[in-house]
Design a protein around this nucleic acid. Structure first.
Lengths: 248, 248
DNA sequence: GAAAGGGCTTGATCTGAGTCAAATTCTGTT
DNA sequence: AACAGAATTTGACTCAGATCAAGCCCTTTC
């Protein structure tokens, strides 16, 4: 994906069919053109820390390609992942200066950045941007709260099933397919990262993955490729009554 | 508190010394006057459900007095509190129609409401409101993420200590006192509500409260009045390295 | 002031997930 | 193809917190 083909569309538009990806030709609005003028790119390798908690943040950014994680840490090293940054997701905030969590690249990533000052000035001129940013933040807040339910009240098995169904759903929306009964996807996380996300240990994650496999809920090809023979069964295991609505 | 004395200041202003309370005379700005024109009030008794998950939301609102909780529930009844609504806190969102969680009054509450349509029109005219709302939402997101760390990685004792220090801090900011070493405050939650907030059972909450009392970290007068002889000790028990920054 | 009921505490026991340790599979490299 | 190192799985054991079950302490009510 060449840099110059990329637009940070999620900031300008919430209605694109491929809204969770970075490129959308339909979005060539005025705001987008303005955003284009003040953007610049930074790339990071897998494993690199993009932002340290406590860092002075003089920019905001949106992920163009790759995956990064938001994590919080206790002094003694216990860590909890608090968010996943996927292409088109936004990080940083206007105003206040210090980062509240670490952002680490899981794969090689490319980020589309805006220095804070011009970005804020632009927000003042085009209310649409602030409103879109508000929408996105509210969605993230809903997702965070759904995650709180998972962390506080679900069993290890339910947690794993929930995570798998979220990754599957995201994958489905990328592929634009309707939610098929049977589907296959890649797990972009190590067992350790899954554990940090779910508030478990990696051993427990591994055991529950094996259990789900033994019970026929999932099939594994290698460690990272997952096939779900029956999506409804997986959702049942996840314990969500609603039809989902997780956002990742 | 007479209704007519009340302004939903948090929407108009983020800089008031009493920003987490509802009344601020300094805030008589133009936006505030506009907000005044479209507001109306609703009150609820303790125990009443203000909003059901899935409800059509045709209004947004800000708490004037009293306390309400946001909760999410699994089919089988397991519940997780995902937020606390205190005076000046905001609930609801422009755009999208359905509520994602239950809102229940803990005490009698008074809410300052705005029908969605006029509120959105106003947001279009005064970008300041959208930006302020964005700030508030980002603060809530940070708080939610800090809570995820608590739910995923802290021990029962640390969870209790964290909750106490949050309530204490909020109380301190209300009383405008500097963080004193020794302080006394009211716990506005039952043991069961604390359990739902912390992802524990009420028995465990009770046991840990007793343990903290036995160890001299807190003193209890009755069930709801807490004295913390040494705030630093409590913060140490909470396991947070940082100087806090929780928002409730 | 007796009874009733809700909130809270305490005890005994159980269990799901953590811990520690070892074996296994996968990956890339020479 | 053999090796090295990391990621993952599996096993044995432990323990923090859940569950089940009384009992206690306040209010409220008659």
């Amino acid at each position: 994906m060449a840099q110059d083909d990329v637009y940070p569309v999620s900031l300008a538009c919430g209605d694109c069919p491929i809204q969770h990806r970075a490129v959308c030709a339909r979005c060539d609005s005025e705001e987008l053109v303005e955003l284009e003028k003040i953007k610049y790119y930074r790339s990071f390798e897998a494993g690199q820390t993009v932002i340290w908690a406590g860092d002075q943040m003089d920019f905001v950014a949106s992920v163009v390609s790759g995956i990064a994680t938001l994590t919080q840490t206790l002094e003694d090293g216990r860590t909890q992942m608090v968010g996943l940054l996927l292409p088109s997701d936004f990080v940083g905030r206007p105003g206040r200066a210090r980062a509240a969590y670490n952002v680490t690249a899981t794969t090689d990533i490319l980020m589309c950045c805006f220095r804070k000052k011009p970005f804020e000035e632009m927000m003042d001129r085009t209310p649409h941007i602030a409103q879109r940013l508000l929408q996105m933040t509210l969605d993230e807040l809903d997702a965070a709260r759904e995650w709180m339910l998972l962390l506080g009240r679900k069993t290890a098995r339910e947690k794993i099933a929930s995570l798998l169904s979220i990754v599957a759903r995201r994958d489905a929306s990328v592929n634009m397919s309707t939610a098929a009964a049977r589907m296959t996807f890649d797990l972009p996380l190590t067992r350790e990262a899954m554990a940090d996300y779910l508030g478990l240990t990696l051993e427990t994650v591994s055991r529950q993955m094996s259990a789900l496999k033994r019970d026929g809920v999932i099939e594994l090809q290698g460690k990272r490729h997952v096939t779900v023979p029956d999506m409804d069964r997986l959702l049942l295991e996840a314990g969500d009554d609603s039809d989902g609505g997780f956002l990742v």
